[in-house]
Design a binder for these strands. Structure first.
Length: 116
DNA sequence: AACATGACGCGTC
DNA sequence: GGACGCGCCATGT
């Protein structure tokens, strides 16, 4: 019985919401944590479709190369950089140092969070 | 039904 | 580092 199981998309939204201020994560990593290994592209779709009212920190999700995935000089690209810098995250030419800013979630806590 | 398109990732060269 | 190729799969045409 899995009556309380969150939909894959809801799990993604949930995990993204857990990324702490000042930290970043990657599409593929979020997919892994949400139980959808190999589904990085699904994470990008989920973020695009996420209701505004959830107030998700979508800008804390970047690609595995540590770079912003929007094309340069697009409104979204510029907005993402501004939001990241507002949290004291350094962004140079669309790139963030993962060694410094990557989120390392506590897996035990995460499992409890996603259990229902 | 078939094909193209992504806010991606990884291995290879 | 950069450029490809391929895997991935829900959506849109």
């Amino acid at each position: 019985m899995k009556q309380n199981a969150l939909s894959p998309m809801a799990k993604i939204w949930h995990v993204v919401g857990l990324i702490p201020k000042g930290k970043v994560s990657c599409y593929g990593k979020i997919a892994d944590l949400a139980g959808l290994p190999g589904r990085a592209r699904y994470v990008s779709r989920a973020l695009k479709l996420a209701p505004k009212q959830l107030n998700l920190p979508w800008y804390r999700v970047i690609n595995s190369q540590g770079k912003i995935s929007f094309p340069e000089n697009t409104p979204a690209y510029i907005e993402q950089i501004q939001l990241l810098r507002s949290e004291d995250i350094e962004v140079n030419r669309g790139k963030i140092k993962l060694s410094t800013y990557k989120w390392h979630p506590d897996l035990a806590t995460l499992m409890l969070e996603l259990a229902y």
